[in-house]
């Protein structure tokens, strides 16, 4: 039996707040290997984001189970789940979602400092190194309104990595960016993957999806297909994008 970083089975999610209740996920079985870069695709309303939030413990699935590093996380209470998110998971959202009263560095520091309150010096130097690596060290003292969207999203990736998580979840991280900023951010994520980090990303941009090791396709709350792409290389980038696009078209995307 293989060791999966993340494994979910029979996952369903029904929103009871609507009348009648809306079932968004209809029993999803999905496994992510350690070090894998997995992309979830699908049309609007197919349930991609719901799937991401359910497997990351942000929302509670209605039924089914999620195992992270072999541990069942579905039964954890809110405090324990929060701790898992804090220490084992990193998040990148479509919008940067930063606290406006903290500067870039403090926003990035926040989860890492919270997880390691006694090692603030180590954490700060690690974060400074991360910011330098992603080319935003020079703006670390800036307010979040003083930098570009691409810089902000790179800072967001730094925040996700600052706590040295086992897995990074990204929900449409380039959805609000122009093409050059998109490339910036995807390069950064690819770099994270190259470090051996597991990534699960939701996107509807085929070019972004082409960076993944594997792409799964979701339709109406069900996983309908999946395609392995192998390791991404810059030289094969265009070819991969074409392949992904052709595959998606065959699925009616």
């Amino acid at each position: 039996m293989r060791n999966y970083m993340l494994e979910c089975s029979g996952l369903t999610k029904t929103y009871l707040s609507t009348d009648p209740p809306t079932q968004v996920l209809h029993g999803i079985d999905l496994s992510v290997e350690e070090g894998e870069f997995l992309v979830i695709m699908g049309a609007s309303g197919s349930g991609k984001s719901t799937l991401l939030y359910s497997i990351s413990g942000m929302d509670r699935p209605t039924s089914g189970s999620v195992h992270l590093e072999g541990h069942d996380v579905t039964s954890l209470d809110d405090a324990a789940m929060s701790k898992v998110r804090l220490t084992r998971m990193g998040f990148v959202f479509q919008q940067a979602y930063f606290l406006s009263n903290l500067n870039i560095r403090d926003n990035v520091l926040l989860p890492a400092l919270k997880a390691n309150p006694k090692q603030s010096e180590t954490v700060v130097s690690r974060v400074d190194a991360l910011l330098d690596r992603f080319g935003i060290g020079h703006i670390k003292h800036h307010g979040i309104t003083e930098v570009s969207g691409g810089q902000l999203q790179r800072a967001s990736i730094c925040r996700a990595l600052a706590g040295e998580p086992a897995i990074v979840f990204a929900d449409e991280p380039t959805g609000a960016l122009n093409s050059s900023m998109t490339a910036e951010v995807m390069d950064a994520l690819t770099g994270v993957h190259d470090d051996g980090r597991t990534i699960v990303m939701v996107t509807h941009d085929p070019a972004c999806a082409a960076r993944a090791d594997r792409v799964v396709y979701l339709r109406d709350g069900l996983l309908v297909d999946s395609r392995s792409l192998g390791r991404w290389t810059r030289s094969a980038a265009v070819q991969r994008e074409d392949d992904v696009l052709a595959w998606l078209r065959s699925l009616g995307f």
């Binding site: 903290l102 400092l113 307010g143 309104t145 003083e146």
Partner: peptide
């Protein structure tokens, strides 16, 4: 935005004392 940025530059999360939620509350 300029005012927020000015404020954010003055704050330092790492220098604060006490638990993180309390530091955040005071900054807020």
């Amino acid at each position: 935005a300029a005012r927020d940025a000015r404020r954010a530059r003055r704050v330092s999360l790492a220098r604060g004392a006490g638990s993180m939620w309390r530091r955040l509350s005071l900054i807020d």
